[in-house]
Amino acid sequence: MMETGLMAIGAGLAIGLAALGTGLAQSRIGAAGAGALAEKPDLLGAIILLIAIPETVVILGFATAAMILLLG
């Protein structure tokens, strides 16, 4: 019982902290991207790419959380 609780906390932390990091990075990239976009609208594709890059972190967090729950 105790272990299940700890696992749940671990899984939560894995995805939560990863999401926090992604959010932090995306907020800065997003602000800068909006700025660049206002001046050069043709950069939209490139900016979507840049904003998308940190998302991998939260996906990895999700993978880790899933593994904790599935393999535990």
Partner: peptide, 18 residues
């Protein structure tokens, strides 16, 4: 957030038009 990202990105883009 330092509050400079948006403006600085715009200024850098504007710089390329100097």
């Amino acid at each position: 957030m330092s509050g400079y990202e948006y403006g600085n990105a715009r200024l850098r883009a504007m710089k390329s038009r100097l």
